[in-house]
Simulated scan of single mutants.
Amino acid sequence: MDLVSVVRGLSGLLWLGALGVLGLLVVRATRHQPVKSLVRTLLALAAAAILVTTVGAGLVFVPPQERGVVISALSPTGYRSQALTPGLHWIVPYVEYVVYYPISKQTYTMSSTPSEGAVEGDDSIKARTADGQLVYMDASVIFSIDPAKVVEVHIAWQDRYAHELVRPLVRGVIRDAVSQFRIEEVISTKRFELEQMISKTLAQRLEENGLTLEGFVLRNIAFTDEYAQAIEQKQIAEQKALQAKFVVEQKKQEAEQARQVAQGQADAAVIKAKGDAQARVIQAQAEAQALQLIAEVLQNNPDLLTYQYIEKLAPGVQVMLVPNDAPYLLPLPSMTPAPTATPTPTPQEAQP
């Protein structure tokens, strides 16, 4: 409880006491009883009530979140040029009074939802884009009164600044900004740029009228039913196009996979053929080297071939019948027993 409230409360009690004494005085006077003491008490209470009431009328307390504009009958302009700052102040009783203005942040909302905005019902902002499309925008503006310009705001707007200054100013700035963008830019690519443009312009216009822009929020953007249907159809078409593109890419991947498999099989066949050819070459080279070695051995040992031939024949063969015109590769064994050699006597044996 501040001092001003205490003084005004005391003033009220004194006036009630004065009225009580006055009532008692009337009762005693009608009964022809002495009232002299009551008259003195009444006069004292009345004087004290008038004094305390006057002091209470002159004392003014300004809270920290407010500023006070003094309306004065003593000033040529009708008001004091400087607003009262927070704290306890004295004004001239009965010829001056104070109008309080908040300097804390205030929010003004315009929305299509009836219970959200400052105005009941659909209060969204209707604007037309550069390509002629109609959009409905919900917005909130956060602002405050410049403490140094409270007197100017009072003179120009009094307490009507929210509805008669902020509201039309915001709606006009939004319409002007939206008209510079196409519908696609408003809803997607340049929405942030749009908000920045609105905030910059709005801050300048509010400052000219003694207000400070604390923030701007573009809450929602809605379209006409026709454009919403067009967007939906476009999205469906885009989804179909993406699906078709996905199918094409899938087919390409499958074809590429089949090509790679075929290429792998072909490469494997080529590698196998090369391996077989190299194996045959190595085998031929080995055979040639073997034949070369055999030829060299036969050249040095001609009877070896005959020996190998005989080794291949069945054991015990004594007779072979061959055609008369067949070439003889081997010398035929003799059909008669070999002659027995007769030893020649030496001269010593010939002598008796």
Rank of each mutant, 00 (worst) to 15 (best):
V39T: 01
I71N: 04
A237Q: 15
K245R: 14
A47H: 00
G275V: 13
G56H: 05
V26Q: 13
T306V: 10
R175N: 06
Y309H: 07
R219Y: 06
Q233K: 14
P323K: 15
V26C: 12
P302A: 11
P302L: 10
A118H: 08
V317P: 08
V27N: 11
I183F: 02
T85I: 09
L38T: 08
R128K: 15
L134T: 15
A350Q: 15
V297K: 11
R280Y: 07
R8H: 08
W90R: 03
I236Y: 07
Q253P: 05
V173H: 00
D138G: 11
G121Q: 09
H89I: 10
E238V: 01
V166I: 06
G132T: 07
V247Y: 01
G12Y: 03
A177G: 02
A73P: 04
R31M: 08
L218R: 12
P114Q: 03
L24W: 11
R205T: 00
P168N: 01
Q283Y: 05
F216M: 04
S124Q: 14
N324H: 15
N209K: 15
Q106T: 08
E207T: 10
D176P: 05
K252I: 10
E256F: 12
D303C: 04
A203L: 13
F143L: 13
V322L: 07
D159C: 06
I231M: 13
E207P: 04
Q106K: 14
L25Q: 14
E184K: 09
Q292T: 13
P76W: 04
L194W: 00
D303K: 08
L165V: 14
D303M: 08
M110D: 04
R205H: 02
D225L: 10
Y227M: 06
M1Y: 06
T212C: 10
W90S: 02
T346W: 07
Q158S: 13
I294C: 05
L329W: 13
G78T: 11
Q285P: 00
G56N: 04
Q299H: 13
D276R: 11
L194A: 01
E96Y: 01
V281S: 12
T113D: 03
Y227L: 11
Y328I: 03
L16K: 01
Q299A: 15
E193R: 09
V39D: 00
V135I: 12
V39N: 00
V173I: 05
S199T: 01
V98C: 08
A73C: 08
K36W: 01
A47Y: 00
V322N: 05
T41Y: 05
Q265H: 06
S111E: 02
V119T: 15
F143M: 03
Q229R: 11
P323S: 13
Y79I: 07
Y97A: 01
L330T: 10
L169P: 01
K234H: 08
F192A: 09
K245N: 04
L211P: 01
V319F: 10
